[in-house]
């Protein structure tokens, strides 16, 4: 197995912040609805942004990749977890990254990957993108605190 075959995006630098504001990196490692993890993560991120901190990236790993499907249809009286995250990304510019290795196992594809793999559909929601595990390590390097929400 060639573990290094996955491509890495170039290191992105984040704007420097003043004062006591911190950069939080967030990992979500369980899927929506089964576990509370993605809800707690969302509530934490919302509170962190409200307090003036920055959340440059959220990385979705393990079954957490399923948060990024645009095909989920929860009952109307329940929160729509995917839409909450998409709206957050639109408002705050948070980079929502779905791990490609975990996503391929679980059937999460963007259009590029669907074309490349000869699949007949893609299912990534607005504001999410698929990239390599290097984005997780880079987030750990570039942020002040790393928080994992999982099981």
């Amino acid at each position: 197995m060639d573990w290094r075959a996955q491509d890495h995006e170039p290191i992105r630098t984040y704007p420097l912040l003043g004062g006591d504001d911190l950069k939080f990196g967030i990992v979500v490692s369980e899927g929506p609805y089964t576990h509370q993890a993605s809800d707690t993560a969302y509530n934490f991120v919302t509170a962190a942004l409200a307090a003036g901190h920055e959340v440059p990236r959220v990385f979705f790993y393990h079954d957490g990749v399923n948060v990024g499907t645009r095909l989920s249809i929860p009952p109307q009286d329940e929160r729509n977890i995917q839409q909450q995250w998409s709206a957050l990304a639109a408002e705050h510019g948070t980079d929502l990254v779905i791990c490609i290795a975990a996503a391929q196992r679980r059937g999460l594809l963007d259009q590029n990957e669907a074309d490349r793999q000869g699949k007949d559909a893609s299912n990534i929601a607005e504001g999410f993108r698929i990239s390599g595990l290097g984005q997780l390590i880079e987030m750990g390097i570039e942020t002040d605190r790393l928080m994992t929400f999982g099981d």
Partner: peptide, 11 residues
């Protein structure tokens, strides 16, 4: 898998 990818970052 994370450990192996992370190794490329020289941390």
């Amino acid at each position: 898998e994370v450990v192996l990818i992370g190794a490329a970052f020289d941390q």
